[in-house]
Amino acid sequence: MIEVRNLCKHYGARKAVDDISFTVNDGEIVGFLGPNGAGKTTTIRILTCYHPATSGSARVAGFDVLSQSIQVRRHVGYLPETVPLYPEMRVREFLRFRGKLRGLARGERETCIARVTERCWLGEVVDRPISQLSKGYRQRVGLADALLHNPRVLILDEPTVGLDPTQIRETRSLIRELTRDHTVILSSHILPEVEATCGRIVIINRGRVVASGTPQELRSRRGDGAVHAEVRAPVEEALQAVRELANGAKVTADAADGWTRLRVEATGDLREPIYRLSTQRGWTLRELRRDAGSLEDFFVRIVAEAQMQAPQ
């Protein structure tokens, strides 16, 4: 559905996007993740035909973004980072206007407006001027506009920025629902958001793709999970026994009022062996848990690595 090959975009001497390639399949929901200024918006603007790339090519819905720009724009619904709304218009007027721009005939236009206002919970504000709406409602109007012509591809740039927690949750569930009929790309610098909504994540930093895969894949690549256990046992004895179990992995222990806290830094799951060990030796076990290693750590690390590699 979306095919990006060796895309570059230079602003003068600065490379905003530096040789990015990826593909998005039909019905997929892909998250662009990266710190601010990583090149997410620039990439998105190339895909939506807002500005052309310096080199490389991109195809959206089977059309080239440069030579078949109008066809691409017909198949794409786009929610920019700053939602482009005319404050003096009413919501319905605005959606009508956008429908006309997209060449929807009158009857079709009204059905489309009815559909998106329902979908984006705009019912109560549809006859209010946009200038009176709160940030959350404006964001929804933008989303309604992107959905208006029922596009095959939806491109959302920071869709939840500036929303309150309830609205963020609602927007996320709306986006997840949308994948049934649309292919979605969304960008964000907030990891839990991407993790919660996307089937696949592309991490971008300094204009390059530094990692991509499903959340599970990325998590497993991280490789530094840990098991925590708290037992009533002498520190030395517990440490030695667990070291044998862990088979060379790093084990640390500290004691506090008769209890010993153990931390085993191993990738595998050592919870069951530790439980058996404690029952064998008659230790009381009061805590046993495993940190799978959050994606957040992975993201921070991978961005930091890329930062160090980049010539300053």
């Binding site: 807002y50 066809q71 920019p80 482009p84």
Partner: peptide, 14 residues
């Protein structure tokens, strides 16, 4: 100024 140009330039109009 208001950035609405982005909506215009990405709509299917020349």
């Amino acid at each position: 100024r208001s950035g609405t140009i982005e909506g215009m330039m990405t709509a299917p109009i020349s």
